[in-house]
Design a protein around this nucleic acid. Structure first.
Length: 831
RNA sequence: GCCGAAGUGGCGGAAUUGGUAGACGCGCACGACUCAAAAUCGUGUCUCGCAAGAGGUGAGGGUUCGAUUCCCUCCUUCGGCACCA
């Protein structure tokens, strides 16, 4: 037999599997029916489809796809009908930037990159069903992305409004949040400002509660569930109405002189709070500078100062505005409000630590909030307390306003509510406010509607046109796909590149009439990735985004795998789309991803992140070339637990390679002339079948590999192995190292692929052991071990244990206080 | 600051309804083979100790016959959110 040379066998079997259609999923027919007529159980296994970057596949991809591939192969060998597809999340900014730099069209760049990704994936032996490949930048795909936009629009879930966006003055373009991290433009390193623009939004906030409730039904990592909950940020509280006290000498000229303004003058202002128990100590109100009420309520006397402050905050960048270190500044408006709890007249201030777009853009302030406390001290606003902490020492300080107490406690200075606990008071005060028409229960969310407009080229055009009056009209479905024009300049000019397309505008006028113009923004690429998992069920359908039957057969996804870094947004958006479809009665489930796993990051050998700038990136292609695909697959799974981050090691990869060499060498030692039954260690073999099967199901691939290593070492030591036992070993190894397993399987004389075999079953009777090692402890310390037949009773064990010389030494004449016996495990003698 | 995850040999990591800590792999040491080296094989490898034994899973306490595992306090690292009233 020749030496193990992976480069000679791997390509061969990859081609063979593809020719034989081993990975192909069929919706019906042979593949989904077992011989006896029983329908195979479906399993939809999905990787987050990759963005095909110019760097090619990195180690994180490799880890993820090899892990799911092992799972897919295991499922198929267990007679599951598996849908395991992939495709390309191909729209996006890096490709567009590359086009700007080089002048090469993004379509050509994308083709180049996806070709490379596909080649790499195939060389890793990943068993995707390539007949279902999708590309989100192809018209066949984005036709349906646009269809989804129209669906949302028709159901009042898509709307246009003015919104603040990140604007880089130097680049003359809008930036995505990721490009404006820390308020600095990624490209020119200059500060990013806020700018108001008309933008399209999806009404994801309508589904806030559904998105929270659904989290109870899914089997996801708890940290991801928590992150989603925090992101939605549901908080229950109370809306309190404060009457505005008209200051008679105040707003004379500008407000009073304008009669229309006078009519509009607000009677009351609403404030959201989760701490209504502190209402009696409320000493002032603070509004966000961009709250629309600011202009109306400010008195002439304070007008100048307020305007100056508002101007200043408008100029601030995001970075400055959220800088916590800076102390809180604000100005008095001259206006007053009435505290509904005690009818006290309290001043209204403005400050930019109050956010305009959360709650009502106004807060009530008191001594029981750190920020309010600090603010009041700075501007000498008188405070009082209404919550008494348990701790007396703390109470002395709080009472004298030396320290802020923001926890729950007992109410004081709160009239009929005195003596209640904070949580009791929150209910009772709210009820009282409702009875007196002074407030309401209210639930607030941090979640905002999803801004999907992008002033970019490489994305799906928003299917909207404007009539000559500027009113938006959805494009009728029959004109989809609403094609992305090709006659554009990529160089950033401050407007969407589509604005420069002659063809695009001519097309619009031709179809809709003179003076009609197209929407020139494209959609956020997250829109494309919010529904792609439906498309795999029916990727060639040109009548629907996916046929109802196909959806029914395959969805929801049984296991979804991808990195933990972008999952809050992507998973949220994808769940939102599913919930929309469910609400509209188009599907009968409301969570798309039943089970979710995140792979841990593969760090560089030095423990840092792999990055081009650090020069510590390992390219999977190089590893395949040097060691072979099977070794790479085994090694990356053997590095550690799938969900933990772990450093790459170019040294320890020798271990898995040696292991495969041993498996290869072992072929020479197959002998059916031996009395195989005696030769094989059947207990170990069946234990290994059990261990590997269980570990694959829980993605504990590292320990599964370790179990196979133990089995192979044992076979080696015995100097021979039966063909049966060796065949079983190859079957266990096949999902992990498919090429070598298929090769050796073939050399055994099998004509069928190993992947058409049934997964080995273990025999419970062969695992059953007759002798066990019992640990003898004295006072909880291990002193000796004895091997005895299984299931011996305690009395018997004590007798045997006490007969051991070592134990006798320890016990001597001391009295035995008690003994603890754990059957077939240990005996602990307490003296 | 808040939320979450994690801290185990020289290194990557095993082990949890509380029951033999360090599986498996790398590295290292010694031995075999070799003119030699590589490769391969064998033996050993938590620390201290000749040994008997003692100590040991980030630190300190607690519960228990027994704690890497459960509880409390603290430290460190990583990830996410970041003035959300």
């Amino acid at each position: 037999m020749q030496k193990y040379k992976p480069e000679k066998i791997e390509k061969k079997w990859q081609d063979y599997w593809e020719e034989q259609g081993i990975y192909k999923t069929s919706d019906d027919g042979e593949n989904s029916v077992v011989k006896d007529g029983v329908k195979k159980e479906k399993f939809y296994l999905l990787d987050m489809f990759p963005y095909p970057s110019g760097d090619g596949l990195h180690m994180g991809h490799t880890e993820e796809y090899v892990a799911t591939d092992i799972y897919a192969r295991y499922l198929r060998m267990n007679q599951k009908n598996v849908l395991y597809p992939t495709g390309w999340d191909a729209f996006g900014l890096p490709t567009e930037n590359y086009a700007i730099k080089t002048g090469v069209h993004p379509k050509i760049v994308t083709k180049k990159h996806t070709d490379n990704f596909r080649r790499q994936l195939k060389s890793l032996g990943v068993s995707y069903d390539w007949s279902r490949e999708i590309d989100s930048s192809s018209p066949e795909y984005y036709k349906w992305t646009q269809w989804f936009f129209l669906l949302l629009y028709k159901n009042n879930l898509a709307y246009k409004k003015k919104a603040k966006v990140n604007w880089c003055e130097s680049c003359q373009t809008v930036l995505a949040n990721e490009q404006a991290e820390g308020g600095i433009c990624e490209r020119c390193k200059k500060e990013v400002a806020q700018k108001d623009l008309e933008q399209w939004f999806f009404k994801i906030t309508d589904f806030a509660d559904d998105l929270i409730n659904g989290l109870d039904q899914v089997d996801w990592p708890s940290s991801t569930v928590t992150n989603q909950r925090n992101w939605i940020g549901r908080s229950e509280g109370t809306m309190v109405r404060f009457e505005i006290a008209l200051a008679p000498q105040g707003r004379t000229s500008s407000v009073a002189s304008s009669s229309s303004r006078n009519d509009l003058f607000p009677q009351a202002l609403e404030v959201f709070t989760t701490r209504v128990d502190t209402l009696f100590s409320c000493s002032f109100l603070i509004l966000a500078p961009d709250n629309l009420l600011v202009e109306t309520i400010t008195t002439d006397e304070h007008k100048k100062e307020v305007e100056k402050y508002v101007q200043e905050t408008r100029k601030k960048t995001n970075l400055e505005r959220t800088d916590l270190q800076k102390d809180k500044k604000g100005v008095f408006t001259g206006a007053y409000a009435i505290n509904p709890a005690n009818n006290e007249k309290i001043p209204i201030w403005i400050s930019d630590f109050v956010l305009a777009d959360y709650g009502t853009g106004a807060v009530f302030a008191d001594a029981h909030d750190e920020r309010d406390f600090e603010f009041a001290q700075k501007y000498n606003i008188p405070l009082k307390v209404s919550i008494r902490p348990q701790d007396d020492e703390l109470w002395q300080k709080v009472k004298n306003l030396e320290e802020c107490f923001s926890g729950d406690g007992i109410l004081i200075n709160s009239e009929q509510f005195d003596g209640l606990t904070s949580s009791e008071a929150r209910t009772k005060i709210t009820d009282w406010l409702i009875e007196n028409n002074l407030g309401d229960k209210k639930i607030n969310y941090k979640l905002r509607d999803w801004l999907i407009s992008r002033q970019r080229y490489w994305g799906a055009p928003i299917p909207v046109v404007y009539d000559p009056e500027g009113t938006a009209h959805p494009i009728p479905e029959k004109y989809l796909p609403w094609l992305l024009p090709t006659d554009v300049e990529f160089k950033p000019t401050g407007v969407s590149p589509l604005a420069k397309s002659k063809e695009f505008f001519e097309r619009t006028e031709k179809i809709f009439g003179k003076g009609w113009t197209p929407e020139i923004d494209t959609m956020d690429t997250f829109v494309c990735s919010s529904w792609y998992y439906f498309r795999f069920a029916d990727p060639k359908n040109d009548k629907e985004f996916a046929g109802a039957e196909a959806i029914k057969q395959w969805l929801p996804i049984d296991m979804y795998v991808g990195g933990a870094e972008h999952t809050v947004l992507h998973l949220m958006y994808a769940r939102f789309f599913t919930k929309v479809l469910h609400k509209l009665g188009l599907i009968n489930f409301n969570e798309p991803f039943t089970k979710l796993h995140h792979q841990g990051t593969i760090l560089a050998e030095d423990g840092r992140k792999m990055s081009k700038s650090l020069g510590n990136v390992i390219n999977p292609d190089d590893v395949v070339k040097q060691f072979g695909t099977d070794t790479l697959r085994l090694h990356i799974m053997f590095l550690g637990s799938f969900e933990d981050k772990k450093p790459w090691s170019s040294k320890t990869i020798l271990g898995p390679r040696r292991f495969l060499e041993k498996v290869w060498q072992l072929f020479e030692k197959i002998s059916d002339d031996y009395k195989d039954k005696q030769k094989d260690n059947e207990t170990l073999l069946h234990k290994t079948i059990k261990k590997v099967s269980e570990d694959i199901q829980s993605l504990d691939y590292n320990t599964a590999i370790s179990a196979m290593m133990i089995l192979v070492s044992d076979m080696e030591k015995r100097g021979g192995v039966s063909k049966n036992a060796y065949s079983t070993l190859l079957q266990l190894l096949a999902p992990f190292a498919p090429h070598i397993s298929e090769e050796l399987w073939n050399q055994l004389g099998n004509t069928n692929s190993i992947f058409l075999q049934k997964w080995p079953k273990y025999d419970e009777t062969k695992i059953k052991i007759t002798n066990v090692t019992i640990v003898i402890q004295i006072n909880g310390k291990v002193r000796d071990r004895i091997i005895i037949p299984i299931d011996i009773e305690e009395k018997e064990i004590i007798k045997i244990a006490l007969a051991c010389p070592i134990i006798q030494n320890f016990v001597g004449t001391k009295k035995i206080q008690r003994t603890i016996y754990i059957k077939n495990k240990l005996i602990n003698i307490v003296i």
